[in-house]
Simulated scan of single mutants.
Amino acid sequence: MTNSLLARLAILAILLPAMFHFTGPALADTSIRLVFAESLAPLSFDHNGETRGILVDVATDIFERELGLAVEVGTYPWERAQQMVRRGEADGFITVSTAERRAYADCGTLPVLRAPLHPLLRRGHKSLAAIEAAGNLEDLRRYSFISYFGNGWAKENLARAGFDVFFADDYASHLKGLALGRGDIALVTPTSGGYYLKELGLAEDLIMLPLVLDTFEYVLCLGKTSPHRNRLGDFESVLGRKRNDGGYVAVLEYYGLQPSTPY
């Protein structure tokens, strides 16, 4: 983890309680269990045994401070985290809404965060010019892709659409694999993609193209068997107010993102 992010976390630990005003009731006896992808900074990650990240902090603030519902959070391999919600072992997660996830969870429509999806490839790739000239995902069908287990967008839009795609064990592994020649293209956002390019020392080996192929919208999804399923609307009501009045811009800034990122 970079020193700049560690410094922000130290400051955030002090200032986070003051960033939001308490408007909800006292914490209820019951709690909601949310699961997140491990090692997906700055969205979710473990820091000194504590689960942190933009998605974690925003969810905890809204449910606990605004809605009076205690939150239990944990990070897991992303595929496992999703299976926990599917089996009813956890209440929900914040991620991109896909058809597969909507089959076992109710997903919101108001994003906690938006992030554009860009092609990433090795510098000096023999087809760099042709890939740069692409206008959409279909124009890239003849190339091979690398993604990671649990990436529902890649499963739905690449694998099931007939693209040649290999799934690595986790987010960091798929970037390392691309740098080593496993596949032509990875699809990443400037948030986690930009972070791990620096963290893994791959910023000089891989290049992120300006072409935007889609936009990830990270929304709350609550399992259809969760006893807290009916709190989705409450969450989005508070989220909408905070988005409009800049109520969590400070969180984004401390994790190194510009305030305009989610809007």
Rank of each mutant, 00 (worst) to 15 (best):
F63Q: 00
L12S: 01
D170M: 04
A70L: 12
N244R: 15
V188S: 11
G193H: 01
I62L: 05
G193S: 10
T60H: 07
S237G: 14
I62A: 07
R86C: 08
S144A: 11
M84D: 01
V56A: 03
D61Q: 09
H174W: 02
L187C: 04
P17W: 04
E89C: 01
D234W: 06
A90V: 02
L113Y: 03
T95S: 15
A154H: 07
A161I: 02
S4D: 14
N3Q: 14
A41R: 07
A203Y: 00
A70R: 15
Y218L: 06
E50S: 11
V112E: 04
P210L: 06
L158N: 06
A172I: 02
A133L: 01
G183V: 01
Y171E: 10
F149T: 12
D214T: 07
G150F: 12
D214I: 08
P262A: 06
E79V: 12
G193F: 01
L113V: 05
D164I: 04
A161E: 15
T60S: 13
K126P: 13
G247A: 09
L239E: 04
M208C: 13
L140Y: 09
T98H: 11
N157S: 10
L137R: 09
D46W: 03
R231K: 14
E50A: 13
L5N: 06
F145I: 05
Y196R: 08
A26C: 08
N244C: 05
L206I: 05
A37H: 09
S127Y: 10
D106T: 11
R102Y: 03
V112A: 02
D245S: 14
V73K: 05
G74N: 09
D205L: 09
P25G: 08
S260L: 09
Y255F: 15
V85S: 00
H21E: 15
A37F: 00
S192E: 11
A7V: 12
V73H: 00
T189L: 04
D139V: 03
H118T: 07
L5R: 09
D139N: 12
P210K: 05
Y255G: 08
L158P: 06
R114D: 03
L206F: 04
R123E: 14
H228Q: 10
S192Q: 07
P262R: 01
I185E: 00
E138W: 02
G201M: 07
S237N: 09
P116T: 10
G162H: 00
R241F: 00
Y254Q: 15
S237W: 04
S147D: 09
K198L: 14
V58N: 03
P210S: 07
F63T: 06
Y104W: 14
R231I: 10
Q83E: 13
T98P: 13
R86N: 12
G88I: 08
A203P: 07
I207N: 01
E156T: 10
L206E: 08
A13K: 15
A115K: 00
A70F: 13
S237L: 01
R229F: 11
L15A: 14
Y148G: 03
K155F: 10
R123Y: 05
L40M: 14
D61R: 01
T51Y: 01
D139W: 07
G92P: 05
A13T: 06
Y195M: 02
Q83L: 14
